[in-house]
């Protein structure tokens, strides 16, 4: 199955995938126990898990006989990177606005 790599925002744009992350935030779960929380087929759940795995939101560990899904920070870091980028962006733009407005108020 060739999966186009989605960016972090596209990955979490899907409600089922957010639900998976939410469930995993409470505890690590096997693919089977994750699938029990959804109406969709197990292959459909596996597909979402693969998307989350590819984007670095989860890791999969073989523990005993079972495959466990565990939250991983990498995917979240990509989201955070965007927030930080725009945070710095606005900070510098607003400084520029301050200079312009100061010039305007002293001219009066």
């Amino acid at each position: 199955m060739e999966q186009h790599r989605l960016d972090a925002f596209q990955v979490i744009a899907d409600p089922s995938r957010r639900q998976i992350l939410h469930l995993l935030s409470k505890d690590s779960l096997t693919i089977n126990s994750l699938a029990e929380n959804f109406d969709m087929s197990r292959p459909a759940v596996s597909k979402h898990i693969k998307v989350l795995y590819n984007a670095g939101f989860i890791s999969i560990q073989d523990i005993g006989r079972e495959r466990h899904c565990i939250l991983k920070q990498d995917g979240f870091k990509e989201l955070q990177q965007w927030l930080e980028y725009f945070d710095a962006f606005w900070g510098s733009k607003l400084k520029k606005l301050e200079v312009l407005l100061n010039e305007k108020s002293t001219k009066k």
Binding site: F9, Q10, A13, P15, R18, L24, S25, D27, L79
Partner: peptide, 27 residues
């Protein structure tokens, strides 16, 4: 500036804040 990828994104961030450490320890 908010709502990246839908309003629920921020819920995930909240969830990460609250659950992250506990989760890591459990893992």
């Amino acid at each position: 500036h908010r709502g990246f990828a839908g309003s629920e994104t921020m819920t995930i961030f909240t969830m990460m804040d609250e659950g992250w450490l506990k989760n890591i320890q459990k893992i």
